[in-house]
C-alpha cells in the first residue's frame, strides 16, 4: 500500500507541470533579478501609456513555457489600470495599478483579489515576456466603471481551480475572473447568470489536452488541479482565448507581445 501511495505521488509530481496552466500566485521565490524586473515592468507601463491605454489586460509567464501545454504561453493575467497615485508623503503621480486574483499561498484552493504594482506583478515571472490586450476605448470606459463598482468583487468566486471551466461557476481562476469582468462590462450587467449564458454562447475556451490518467492523478498533486467541473473535454480560459474572443467581436484595439527587445503583434 505504501508503495502504491509513493507511486501515485511520483506520478502526480511528474504530471503536475503539464496540467498547471493558469496558476496565478503572488510572487514566490523570484527567478529573475529584481532590478531587471522593475525595468521591464516600467517598460510595459510606458508602452501602455504611450498608446493611451487607461486599462489593459496584461499577462505574465509564471511557469517555464517548455512545461506548458501547446498553445499556452502565459499563466497569469490581470487588469492594469492607469491611476493617480498619491504617495505617503503627499506627492502625486500617474502609473498603473494591477488588479489581480491570486491563489493563497497557504491554501491553493482559495483566491483573493489583490492590488499590487507592475513590478510585483512580474516578480515571480520566469521570462521577460508579456502578452497585452488593450481594449477599445469604449470598452475601457465600461471596464473602468465595473472595476470601480461592487460588481468587480461580487464576480469573484474564491474557490480556485487552475483549470477552471468558464462555462460554469463552480471554480474560478485569474483568467476566468477577468473574463467575467469583461463580460459584465461589455453587456452592462452584473448578473452572474446572464454573464454565464453569454460566455457559453460566445466564448471559446482553450481546450487542454489531458488524458484520463492525468486527470485522475492531477488532484493528487494539488486539489487546485481538479477537473471535476469539466465533462469529457477540459477547456479553460487563457490569455490566448481571451485575445481571440476580443479580436473576433471587435473588442480589442491592440493585442501584442512584449519582450525586453521586441514588440510583436499576435
Amino acid at each position: 500500500m505504501t508503495r502504491f501511495i509513493k507511486l501515485c505521488a511520483a506520478i502526480a509530481i511528474l504530471i503536475s507541470p503539464v496540467v498547471a496552466t493558469a496558476g496565478s500566485s503572488a510572487a514566490g521565490k523570484p527567478i529573475l533579478p529584481a532590478a531587471e524586473v522593475a525595468i521591464f515592468a516600467d517598460r510595459v507601463q510606458q508602452d501602455l501609456a504611450a498608446r493611451g491605454a487607461s486599462i489593459a489586460i496584461v499577462s505574465c509567464m509564471g511557469r517555464d513555457p517548455a512545461q506548458m501545454p501547446n498553445g499556452i504561453l502565459y499563466t497569469h493575467v490581470a487588469f492594469w489600470v492607469y491611476a493617480q497615485i498619491t504617495l505617503a508623503d503627499g506627492s502625486r503621480g500617474q502609473g498603473y495599478r494591477v488588479y489581480n486574483l491570486y491563489q493563497r499561498t497557504d491554501d491553493r484552493t482559495v483566491s483573493d483579489l489583490v492590488q499590487d504594482s507592475p513590478a510585483a506583478f512580474f516578480a515571480g515571472a520566469q521570462r521577460f515576456d508579456t502578452g497585452v490586450i488593450i481594449p477599445k476605448p469604449a470598452l475601457q470606459r465600461k471596464l473602468l466603471a465595473v472595476l470601480n463598482s461592487s460588481t468587480y468583487a461580487a464576480l469573484h468566486n474564491p474557490r480556485y481551480s487552475v483549470l477552471s471551466n468558464p462555462r460554469n461557476g463552480m471554480f474560478q481562476n485569474c483568467t476566468e475572473h477577468t473574463l467575467d469582468v469583461l463580460m459584465a462590462a461589455a453587456y452592462g450587467t452584473s448578473d452572474p447568470n446572464q454573464i454565464q449564458a453569454n460566455i457559453i454562447a460566445y466564448f471559446d475556451p482553450q481546450v487542454i489536452s489531458i488524458g484520463g490518467l492525468k486527470r485522475t492523478f492531477a488532484t493528487l498533486a494539488s486539489e487546485a488541479l481538479t477537473t471535476q467541473d469539466h465533462g469529457s473535454v477540459v477547456a479553460t480560459t487563457t490569455f490566448g482565448s481571451l485575445a481571440r474572443f476580443m479580436q473576433k467581436y471587435g473588442l480589442a484595439a491592440e493585442v501584442y507581445r512584449r519582450t525586453p527587445s521586441t514588440i510583436s503583434r499576435f
Binding site: 483579489l113 469573484h156 474557490r159
Partner: peptide, 8 residues
C-alpha cells in the same frame, strides 16, 4: 484584499 460571493 477583497473576497466574497459564493459561486453563482
Amino acid at each position: 484584499s477583497t473576497q466574497t460571493s459564493p459561486p453563482p
